[in-house]
């Protein structure tokens, strides 16, 4: 069982959260984004084997999004923070 530290509620088990995927994507600007930009944003992923920054929604708690840096080869949670936070550790 993963234990995720919500910056607002504290450490909670993974079952309180809903996974929302890769946190490194930049949504293209609606006016200026090209088709290529949208293709990359919607479909392409780095999918690294190592530290991965991702979003989890604390859906059974405060319902806010939490940014999590997790090693996807060991499932170790390296750091958590607010969605806009810059996380440290894990070599990525």
């Amino acid at each position: 069982m993963l234990e995720i530290k919500c910056p607002w509620c504290g450490a909670r088990t993974q079952t309180e959260f809903t996974y929302a995927g890769d946190a490194t994507l930049d949504r293209p600007d609606a006016e200026t984004g090209s088709e290529e930009d949208w293709y990359e944003y919607v479909y392409l992923r780095d999918n690294p084997r190592g530290a991965h920054d991702e979003l989890w929604q604390h859906s059974a708690g405060c319902r806010r999004y939490v940014k999590v840096r997790r090693d996807v080869t060991t499932h170790e949670i390296i750091a958590t923070g607010a969605p806009g936070a810059k996380l440290d550790g894990g070599g990525s």
Partner: peptide, 11 residues
């Protein structure tokens, strides 16, 4: 959730 580990969790 993304994973390259060949093991998962109890839920």
């Amino acid at each position: 959730y993304n994973s390259y580990a060949q093991r998962g969790n109890f839920p």
